[in-house]
Design a protein around this nucleic acid. Structure first.
Length: 809
RNA sequence: GGGCAAGUGGCGGAACGGUAUACGCGUUGGUCUCAAAAACCAAUGGGAGUUGAUCCUGUGAGGGUUCGAAUCCCUCCUUGCCCACCA
């Protein structure tokens, strides 16, 4: 009589959690003989009480994958840490009425516990925390190097500002409910645009390398395309115009050969040339400029095109006509040169503007439709970059658009009117926040106004504890310091943005306690590059790009031995609420992971998350799926009661080896959902058996180990009758089972028979038939025979074990 | 407007150019039960039929390549994501 087993997930999970943790069974060993795999998942920023179920979805798949690799014989690094600086933590602390330090200390404990409850195979000896002074010492150190190399510079930038809260980040600002301007998310105060000095990182200096080195890595094409699009490299020409009756010049950037169609110039309201062009007394123009300056880029966009004529002209080099200079809202100071030559005949935006203000419209490009008559409506505008031929453009006439651009640039350079340039859409990235909760920027202002870096020995510049933690500038005592000469000086009170610490956290994992440098070069050499980087789709552009920049910089200063951190990137979607909408408290569709774990256990939670679909997808949470997964775990556990030392039954053996073969391939391809299907199929088979051979059982338990680590450990210990816990006896340190190709193969197969490519019958035949044997057996099938009758067989296509196709006349 | 994905049952999704819809959910019927739940068994793309061996049709639409297409190619449509008055 089979032993009756009762599945009690709570008991099983509590039994193993602590044992695994105490013995750190998932330790990643530096310089091990085994080949290494570095599996990285984006670290969470703790901004709530504990792990969200969305986090669990993001971590469970990489974690199962890392377990598989460990069992496959790799020395696996699967680390975890906390991205703890920045607004989310600060906001959470404020709501909870505690300091960010307290909030993070508690969150780290809670998040870690939640991950242990899920059974995550993390080497906790490598845990890092970006707000730990021993960590941010090196974030500051790297910033100092960036500053020394001239890659961190100060720049006047428009920022959001309000009297009550000071400078605010974009995400802290909301549109005002009455539609008039913006308000702060917290407090609802009126927010305005102001120019402030900000630290920026000159990431565009690395733009070409960031594009070129994509060839060194193996990201998906879509990820590479996104990286390139974000950088936005463009080749074009800067054309300089002399303003008539003035010393001033205006330089316009263009990528299109449409100078014969340029009928006006438009400059951004912030353009410095305006002071030279427009008289102080010209209130119409200045009022317009002031009104535009008060708006943000965000507000200016999506508004109707609006502009004012400055009263000045330039001469178009090629048409020799005087063309007017306008100021308009759609010209942006930080795109190109802040001035555009308006070519309304081919550019929809210029067209709308010209139409509105009665500026002449000239056609210089003919589209594929060949239409070259007068321009009456928007549909006749040939867009830049479109395939088209030049007309009304002197020596360019008849040329293709792209060729004409090259010729135009040659011509303008020859004449000295312009110069070829490369521009990037990517701009220097703002790197300072006027907030408390971030890494202090390790610079000081001397009495004479010059800037000096804090000495290496004085790093880290620690964040002083503050009760009211709005901004460091409020801490007068901390701000006062002395410079290297011993004179009074003032500390920089800006802190770094959230993404400072997350630019290099993956490096620290290889050597988390190093007090001498970011990470030992040999350890970095051993573990890097990251073999697989899992994260959310939202981080595939900016985070990936900025951290690649940061890493390249570290390479340039000799702090790391290679210049690309990640070999492969896997971007995942979101977990939605059961109703198919993003989880939110207001919708009331938030899933509480604690309840899931209590009711169904970690093993069921893990597989239900991995079973939803491929990692890349976005899925609604499926409560029924969870129940089904719980049933699967329970069935497997109870089947353990039927294990006996009996001879392996052939049929089951074949199914086992097919299971191993398929799951191995699926795990390698990261198709965890189908791997779980295979486990279900095998489980459906063994639950019908009277007795299960222990040899088969042990291999099966190893297969399920990465997916359901708790129940697998329990069953493994039982099956081997291990008494007292020993680390080396853990199922998770065993080797992934090998499959026997001859066993994984069916002896009899269903061979589909087609007539003219149409499926007509399936016959059960021995595997690996010759074509003649297959033909003979197929002919015996009545359906096939009736189809063929006396018709002539023109051709036979036979793919062994796959298909037999008769082509009839 | 640009870039990148993706369109398969009632739903999540399977399918190295070779049996379309594996696995799971849901639904329906059955077993068990006083009854319900749970569990188990069976059926489940649509249609026709002499309803247990058959046929037609079917992977967003339309073409093409092929003995054979969800899969490869072309055109179009739709959806999602990212970027965007980008000069």
């Amino acid at each position: 009589m089979a032993q009756l087993k009762q599945y009690n997930h709570e008991k099983i999970e509590n039994n193993w959690k602590d044992k695994w943790f105490k013995d750190n069974i998932y330790e990643a060993v530096d310089f091990s003989e085994k080949p290494k795999k570095y599996i990285l998942a984006e670290l969470p920023y703790p901004s709530g009480k504990s792990l969200h179920i969305g986090h669990m979805m993001r971590y469970t798949v990489p974690e199962i994958y890392s377990r598989f690799l460990r069992m496959k014989g790799y020395n696996v690094l699967f680390p975890m840490g906390w991205d703890s600086f920045g607004l989310p933590a600060e906001t959470y602390a404020q709501k909870a009425g505690i300091t960010p330090q307290e909030a993070i200390a508690q969150a780290a404990v809670d998040y870690k516990k939640a991950m242990q409850d899920m059974g995550y195979a993390i080497d906790w000896s490598r845990e890092i925390n970006t707000c730990d002074p021993d960590y941010y010492k090196w974030t500051q150190w790297t910033f100092k190097k960036l500053w020394e190399k001239g890659l961190a510079v100060q720049k006047e930038m428009p920022v959001w500002w309000c009297k009550e809260l000071g400078v605010l980040a974009d995400e802290e600002v909301l549109p005002a409910p009455d539609g008039d301007g913006r308000i702060s998310e917290r407090g609802g105060y009126k927010v305005e645009r102001k120019q402030f000095k900000q630290w920026v990182l000159d990431i565009p200096a690395y733009a070409d390398r960031l594009i070129a080195d994509l060839d060194k890595v193996d990201y998906q094409d879509s990820v590479k395309a996104a990286q390139k699009a974000w950088i936005g490299r463009k080749e074009g020409i800067n054309i300089t115009y002399q303003v008539l009756e003035s010393n001033a010049t205006i330089t316009c950037f263009t990528t299109t050969p449409v100078n014969w169609g340029a009928t006006f110039i438009v400059v951004a309201p912030e353009h410095p040339v305006l002071t030279a062009l427009v008289d102080k007394g010209n209130t119409e123009v200045w009022n317009f400029i002031d009104r535009m300056k008060a708006q943000s880029d965000l507000e200016r966009e999506s508004k109707e095109k609006e502009g004012v004529f400055t009263g000045r002209y330039v001469k178009n080099h090629v048409t020799n006509k005087d063309i007017p200079i306008w100021v308009a809202n759609f010209a942006l100071m930080d795109v190109g040169t802040g001035a555009v030559q308006g070519c309304p005949g081919h550019d929809r935006r210029d067209f709308e503007f010209a139409k509105k203000y009665g500026i002449p419209i000239a056609r210089v490009v003919v589209g594929e439709d060949g239409y070259d008559g007068p321009i009456e409506n928007v549909n006749q505008v040939v867009q830049a970059g479109d395939k088209g031929k030049m007309v009304n453009s002197d020596f360019l006439d008849g040329m293709e658009f792209a060729e004409a651009m090259q010729k135009t640039m040659d011509y303008f350079e020859e004449k000295g009117w312009g110069k070829r340039v490369v521009t990037y859409k990517m701009r220097p990235q703002v790197f300072s926040r006027q907030r408390y909760w971030g890494e202090p920027i390790p610079l000081i202002y001397k009495q004479d106004g010059t800037i000096e870096a804090v000495a290496d020995e004085a790093l880290p510049v620690e964040l002083p504890p503050m009760k009211n933690f709005a901004s460091l500038s409020e801490n007068k005592e901390w701000v006062q310091t002395i410079d290297s000469a011993g004179n009074p000086a003032r500390r920089e009170t800006d802190t770094m943005p959230t993404w400072a610490g997350s630019n290099w956290y993956y490096l620290r994992y290889v050597d988390p306690n190093n007090a001498e440098m970011l990470a030992d070069l040999n350890k970095t050499k051993y573990w890097f590059p990251v073999d697989m980087y899992f994260g959310t789709a939202a981080h595939t552009t900016a985070h990936l790009l900025y951290s690649r920049f940061w890493f390249k910089f570290l390479y340039d200063i000799g702090a790391v031995p290679l210049d690309e951190p990640y070999m492969y990137r896997m971007s995942g979607g979101m977990l939605l609420g059961p109703d198919g909408h993003a989880m939110s408290k207001t919708r009331g569709n938030v899933i509480n992971p604690q309840e899931v774990l209590e009711s169904y256990g970690a093993d069921a939670a893990r597989i239900s998350l991995a079973f939803l679909g491929p990692y890349e997808g976005t899925y609604p949470w499926n409560p029924q799926g969870l129940v089904a997964c719980h049933r699967l775990v329970k069935t497997i556990y109870e089947a353990g009661g039927k294990v006996a030392s009996v001879k392996a039954e052939q049929k089951t053996l074949v199914k086992l080896h097919k299971l191993i073969k398929k799951t191995t391939r699926m795990m390698e391809e990261l198709k965890l959902n189908t791997a779980i299907s295979e486990i279900m199929i095998f489980t459906n088979h063994i639950k019908k058996l009277e007795k299960i051979s222990d040899e088969i059982w042990k291999d099966f338990v190893k297969v399920i180990a990465p997916f359901m680590p708790f129940v697998a450990e329990e069953l493994w210990q039982e099956a081997n009758s291990f008494g007292e816990w020993k680390k080396e006896n853990s199922v998770h340190l065993q080797t992934w089972p090998k499959f026997d190709e001859s066993l994984a193969k069916e002896e009899e197969i269903n061979l589909p028979i087609q007539i003219n490519g149409k499926m007509r019958a399936i016959i059960l035949v021995p595997a690996d038939l010759s074509e003649d044997e297959a033909k003979e057996l197929a002919m015996k099938d009545t359906t096939i025979a009736s189809h063929i009758k006396e018709k002539e067989i023109k051709k036979v296509v036979y793919v062994p074990n796959k298909i037999l196709n008769f082509v009839l006349s």
